[in-house]
Design a protein around this nucleic acid. Structure first.
Lengths: 330, 330
DNA sequence: GTTAAGATTGGGAACGTTCCCTTACCGATA
DNA sequence: TATCGGTAAGGGAACGTTCCCAATCTTAAC
């Protein structure tokens, strides 16, 4: 069906070794052989067989990308989507393709599937149980964590400086004369949120503000942000400002504030985290902490490929800086 | 390094044929052999080699997904992201993995790359030149178009009923007593937009409304929507209602209307198309035509797999219905 | 004219499977 | 006891490459 190197050899009147050399541009061969081989390849509409090549060389030039959270893919998640896009784009630029895996495959885990497909490395862009990491680290497959980290030596990751970002967000609120600041967050079992919580706490403490029970935790969705904000508004003393641990929750919170007929930022100021696209669109536009999602994706790919190439002495732990974005909600 | 079927054979004391039979659960083998093989596999931490298998069976169980527009990936595009998510999810459910390709790879086209990787089929989720389609159709690789179509026999596709959706949107505007209706659109070279344009025209005509020059065409971005709407507002007689050929442009248009201090929908009503997530978030929330993106992704995968399996007599052309969603902008 | 170095080429094993074909085995029937 | 049918298991080629090693051919130096 598909022409092979052997067919080319026959047409060009050389050996398949020579064809291979020409096609991979390795070893030595004469200009004449090159010409004959290239012509024959053209004539036969030859398409390289990456499978056969991978079989011999033991590298597929494919990278696995695991993206799901609670058995739901997060490809269209406003925070993850740009990260994933950057991962795909930068992989291709560096000569690797991405095989996406959620945990929806018929049998077994997605990581197992990727291992069978012999990917050269795996990027985990989902909340993941440390025990799984250790399992795959033992498989000696290069892997990198995105927007997450784990205390296990030799596991590369790239995440944001959640602590400092949160600290800066809350400090910004304080600079706007707020002293009564609430916190709405996704699950503190996720490291990012916990770090943001600590940043919130520290900023209050460093500014001599007593920490009160104005913290509400739930899952990290918009509707949950709405629900938690409503709770806060209905509590004895509602805060005058709120830091939400991500933009989706902040937007939910804004909805809650609006439906309570309170003015933003006059009655209640609000700031989020992540700087997702939606924040610019809504009215009032959302102040937030920018996290460079493209950079995160790019860095993740670079890290993984260094790992694959067994580069020495690169930085395994990558913590990207954040930036305060002031818009209309503060 | 990795254990092979041969290693298992040695440990289990059977031939590699028997191991293969047990592992693929094909042919006949005794319970005893099965037990020995499974135990050996467990002991050696055997992981199947999908490459070797694909090499023999000539199917990789991988599907290619091409997603870009004007050399930019569109993974995080608010319309395409949910489609892609559905594609990935449904592929995995049916036992296929997705290899994503943008045109960012170092050399050659993304489709060429996928062909080298021997994917079992390709999904094109981008605007694509018909000549390319024909080229790949000649390669006899199964392919399906998403949100697009081409007049070439045997090319499967799934798209929305753009004409009827647009017709319904404009009819809705007319039912709100509008007779002066503008149209803001992405490039009419893209089939979807052209069909939406025809739907707009037909609705006007069928309601006896004279078609005036209130059509503005540009690229399909938010900022372009803003720009085109501003143009329309500054023209001699601004329309009292606008149909935007996609939600992003509609949102841009809303920004323009707001910054001109006009009220929505009192001064100007607006309706979009696609029903992307953002439309619910903005204020006022956007009336639109719902297009079921999950269904589109699901259908695309089903179509492709039917094609791969050489199923007979399935519907190659799939046109999904749309639904009017009335929110605050109309 | 012989020799040797260096460039070019070819042969063939190997990568890890699948699957066709044969052989071995076992109990039953004639 | 010889033959048969049927099940179970093994041997080996093939999939399309890469790459080591050996063979051949040039060319130039002596």
């Amino acid at each position: 069906m598909n022409a092979t190197i052997k067919d080319i050899a026959k047409v060009a009147g050389v050996s398949k070794s020579t064809v291979s050399r020409v096609l991979t541009n390795s070893g030595r061969f004469s200009e004449e052989s090159k010409k004959k081989v290239l012509e024959a390849a053209e004539k036969l509409k030859y398409t390289k067989n990456a499978l056969a090549r991978a079989m011999k060389t033991k590298e597929t030039k494919n990278l696995g990308l695991i993206v799901y959270q609670k058995h739901k893919p997060i490809l269209s998640h406003p925070f993850y989507a740009p990260v994933i896009e950057a991962i795909v784009e930068n992989s291709m630029k560096l000569g690797y393709s991405i095989i996406i895996a959620t945990d929806q495959d018929i049998k077994g885990s997605s990581a197992e599937l990727l291992l069978e497909k012999r990917v050269d490395g795996i990027i985990f862009a989902s909340f993941i149980d440390p025990s799984i990491i250790i399992k795959y680290k033992n498989q000696r497959i290069p892997l990198v964590l995105v927007n997450n980290s784990v205390d296990f030596p030799g596991v590369s990751y790239v995440k944001f400086n959640n602590f400092m970002g949160a600290y800066e967000a809350v400090t910004h609120l304080i600079s706007k004369k707020h002293t009564d600041i609430g916190f709405i967050s996704g699950p503190l079992t996720h490291r990012s949120y916990k770090e943001r919580y600590y940043g919130y706490l520290s900023a209050l403490k460093d500014n001599g503000i007593k920490v009160e029970k104005k913290v509400r935790v739930g899952n990290s969705t918009l509707s949950e942000g709405n629900r938690l904000m409503t709770q806060l508004l209905n509590s004895p003393q509602a805060p005058t400002a709120v830091f939400a641990s991500n933009d989706m929750m902040a937007i939910g919170a804004i909805k809650a504030i609006k439906s309570n007929k309170l003015a933003i930022p006059e009655d209640i100021a609000i700031i989020g985290f992540d700087n997702i696209e939606h924040g610019k669109l809504i009215d009032p536009s959302l102040s937030t902490i920018d996290a460079d999602k493209e950079e995160m994706g790019k860095k993740a790919v670079e890290l993984l490929i260094k790992e694959i190439n067994k580069d020495q002495g690169f930085q395994r732990e990558n913590i990207l800086p954040t930036k305060l974005i002031v818009r209309e909600t503060t």
